[in-house]
Write a protein that binds this DNA or RNA. Structure first.
Lengths: 239, 239
DNA sequence: CCCTCACATTTGTCTAGACGTCTATACGAC
DNA sequence: GTCGTATAGACGTCTAGACAAATGTGAGGG
C-alpha cells in the first residue's frame, strides 16, 4: 500500500542514493505526485516529515531542496532515556547498587516540583551506577507515595525504574523537563564520584521533572554524572 | 480570513478559558469542523499544531484531550539565541568588551568541527559579557575567513554577532549543535569569571557549532557561562 | 544600465467526500 | 458472571481540484 510514510522512505532513499545532489532542487510537488501516482497533498505530507527531520528545505514559490545531512549525535538531550540505557547503548557493562530506598517526607523543593504538599509521603530511591565496574553516576529519584502506592514494598525493585513504574504502577513516563547545571563543589554527592584525588573529575548535575502522557508530575530526579563519561548534545533551532 | 492557524489560536483560547477542563475530551473533529465552518482536514491541521506543542493529546479511535499545560520555561535550550539576547531578555543591562579580534590559523579541533583544513585562516573573536556591570560570560567565536571575508576589517564590529554575520556577510545562522559540559578547573577562561575568591562560582561551558539554513558550518563558538546566572532547560521526549 | 511590471512557476491552503483503522461498549452465548 | 463479537463513534489517510501567495524571470521603458 502506498502511504505518505512509504513515500517519505522512498524519497529518503533517493536522497541517500544521491539521486539529487546536496543543495539541488527536487522536481516540483506536482511532478513528484505524478511520479508516485498519489495526490499532491499526500506527497506534501511526506515532504513535511522530511522537512521536520531537517533533510529537506522547502522555499515558498521556489522549490524544495536537499539539505546537507547533519551528523549523527550520540546521546541527544531531546530524547529522554534512562541512565542505564545510556550506559548500555555506549556498549558498557552496566551495574548498580541501591544506596537507599524507602519512604520519607517531601521537602519544600520536591513539593514545588512535584506539585504536592510539603511533608506528604514520597518514595526516595538512591543508586550508584557503574559502567564496566567504575562509578559513573549517582541517581536520586523521588516519587509521590500516592502514585506508586506500595509497589516498592511488595516487589523487590531492580533494573529499570521506567520499566518498573510502567509495569507495577501503571505510570508511563512520556517526557521530562531537564535542567543541566554544575553542582557546587561542596555537594556531598559529587564526592561519591571522585575517584582520582589529584585530577578533579568533572561532574554535571541533571535535575529532571518527569511527566506522564497527560503532563502529570510523576518523578523528580537528580542525576550526578561524570562529564568525562557522559556527553550531552542538543540541536538548537533559531526561531 | 479563516485559516488553520486562526483556528489553532481559537482553540488555544478556548482551552485557556477553561471551556474544556484539563483531561476532558474535546468534541469530535467532525463537530469542531462544523462549528468552525471548515473542512475536517483544515481543523485537523490546527489540532496537529496544538498536539505538537504538547497542548492536546490525540488518541486514535477515542478522541482528543486537553493536556495539563506545562509551565513556561526560561531560556529553553531548544531555541537558539545569542548570549546578548539572553541577558537582555532577563531584563538586565548588557555590555561587552572585545578582548581580541583578528585572523589566526585554524587548530585541529576547530578544523574538524568547521569542516575546513587545519591551518587555514579563521577569524577569532573573544569577548567578555557583562550583565548589569558584572562579568557573566566569556565568549570565543571562530569563523572561516573564506566565509566572512574582510567584513571584520572593513566594518567595526559591535553588538550582535548573528546580526553582523547576516547583514555584512550574508550568513544566516539557522541552527546549532550544542554540547554542554563542565570545564576543567584549570581552564584559564574559567578564571576570568571568578569574582569571589572564597565561594567558587560555578561555570558551564557551551561548545556550539552553528549552521546556516543548508547545514553548512558557519561558526564555532565556546561560551563560558556563570551557571548562577544562566539556567538551561530542555524538554525531553521519550521515543 | 537599472527599474518596474506582468507572467509563469512553485509552494501554501482549503474543500467535500470517501474509506480504513482503532477503541470502547453493549449484547449475546455459554 | 465471563468471554467473544458486533457495532458505533472517533481518528487516520487519501483524492482531485481550486485558488492564494511568494518568487524568479524576462520584456519593456526610462
Amino acid at each position: 500500500m502506498i502511504t505518505y510514510q512509504n513515500i517519505k522512505l522512498e524519497i529518503e532513499k533517493m536522497i541517500d542514493n544521491r539521486l539529487w545532489k546536496v543543495g539541488q532542487k527536487l522536481p516540483s510537488e506536482y511532478e513528484l505526485a505524478k511520479y508516485f501516482n498519489v495526490s499532491r497533498e499526500t506527497l506534501r505530507a511526506a515532504i513535511k516529515l522530511l522537512e521536520q527531520e531537517g533533510k529537506l528545505l522547502v522555499k515558498h514559490g521556489v522549490g524544495t531542496f536537499v539539505i546537507k545531512p547533519l551528523p549523527m549525535i550520540p546521546s541527544r538531550l531531546e530524547f529522554l532515556q534512562s541512565i542505564g540505557t545510556m550506559i548500555k547503548l555506549a556498549g558498557l557493562n552496566e551495574e548498580e547498587n541501591k544506596e537507599m530506598i524507602g519512604e520519607v517526607m517531601c521537602t519544600k523543593e520536591w513539593a514545588a516540583a512535584l506539585n504536592i504538599a510539603e511533608g506528604s509521603p514520597v518514595v526516595k530511591l538512591e543508586r550508584i551506577r557503574y559502567a564496566d565496574g567504575e562509578a559513573v553516576a549517582y541517581s536520586i529519584n523521588i516519587m509521590p507515595k500516592e502514585l506508586v502506592g506500595d509497589a516498592f514494598e511488595r516487589v523487590d525493585f531492580s533494573g529499570s525504574l521506567f520499566g518498573f513504574l510502567e509495569n507495577k504502577c501503571k505510570l508511563h513516563i512520556a517526557r521530562a523537563d531537564t535542567e543541566l547545571l554544575v553542582p557546587l563543589k561542596k555537594d556531598k554527592y559529587v564526592a561519591r564520584l571522585q575517584i582520582d584525588k589529584e585530577e578533579e573529575t568533572p561532574v554535571i548535575l541533571m535535575k529532571q521533572l518527569h511527566y506522564d502522557e497527560q503532563n502529570k508530575e510523576v518523578l523528580y530526579s537528580f542525576d550526578y554524572l561524570r562529564n568525562d563519561v557522559f556527553n550531552f548534545w542538543v540541536r538548537r533551532e533559531r526561531k
